[in-house]
């Protein structure tokens, strides 16, 4: 196996196939190759059917690829889900503490950490609320706090803003950038929104569909913090939109 000291993740020629319900052999990923530098923010953009969810599962080791090599230079991955995936029977505090509980962290310590993370996402006052009592934005913040509580070194975010209204999504994006800078975690985010991807990412991976494959890897060199109303930003948005148009 090749070593990649500065890379948190290296995927080499990943292929994934499985049988659908009618037992037809489906190719979901074909020769997916890219790498994610440690501490960077990378977005994946692609149409439906690009195998993004399968790719996430392969990266997290929850599914074996049919062929290819995955090098993971991380030990504590975490994930933030599009549909929040909070445990409805647990309060916000217990949801955040869930990962620590599974690692047998003593109750007092895990509750201290969970409160700290809830405070970071601005929800300490809702620690006793159940997910059903929280708004979409609040649920997503609890999901983010749950991920941060295990001190991840690799964070996967699956379309974290797609179920949120514009104002909530903007607030969460700002918080996410703060957290990314403070923690120095590697973030891999699946996204549908080109401006969001450009605003947040160091690198954008464009994927094509049927089967999922990497069309292009685009580096975003705009200085941070990014001016989302500047001409350079809109130039990148236009260029990327054009690339995606070509793919689809």
């Amino acid at each position: 196996m090749t070593t990649h000291p500065h890379m948190a993740l290296v995927l080499s020629r990943i292929c994934a196939r499985f049988a659908d319900e009618e037992r037809h052999d489906l190719s979901v990923l074909r020769d997916v190759t890219f790498s994610v530098r440690t501490g960077s923010f990378v977005s994946i953009i692609g149409p439906s059917g690009a195998g993004k969810s399968t790719l996430m599962r392969v990266i997290l080791g929850m599914m074996l690829p049919t062929s290819g090599e995955v090098v993971r230079n991380f030990s504590r991955p975490a994930m933030v889900f599009q549909n929040y995936a909070l445990f409805p029977w647990l309060s916000a505090l217990d949801n955040v503490a869930f990962g620590l509980r599974m690692s047998s962290v003593p109750k007092q310590e895990r509750e201290r950490v969970a409160r700290e993370k809830l405070k970071e996402v601005g929800l300490l006052h809702l620690e006793n609320h159940y997910p059903a009592q929280l708004s979409g934005g609040q649920r997503q913040r609890v999901g983010l706090a749950r991920a941060l509580a295990i001190q991840p070194d690799f964070l996967i975010m699956d379309e974290p803003f797609s179920n949120l209204d514009t104002i909530t999504a903007e607030e969460l994006k700002a918080d996410l950038l703060k957290i990314w800078r403070a923690y120095g975690i590697t973030i891999l985010m699946v996204n549908h929104l080109i401006p969001d991807a450009i605003e947040l990412s160091d690198q954008i991976i464009l994927m094509g569909a049927h089967p999922g494959h990497v069309e292009k890897v685009v580096a975003i060199d705009l200085p941070r913090p990014r001016d989302t109303r500047g001409a350079l930003f809109f130039q990148d948005v236009d260029a990327l939109t054009e690339e995606i148009r070509k793919i689809s």
């Binding site: 929850m62 889900f81 295990i150």
Partner: peptide
């Protein structure tokens, strides 16, 4: 997603 969350967070 709930199944995956349980797995990822160590259940």
């Amino acid at each position: 997603d709930l199944n995956d969350a349980a797995t990822i967070f160590g259940a």
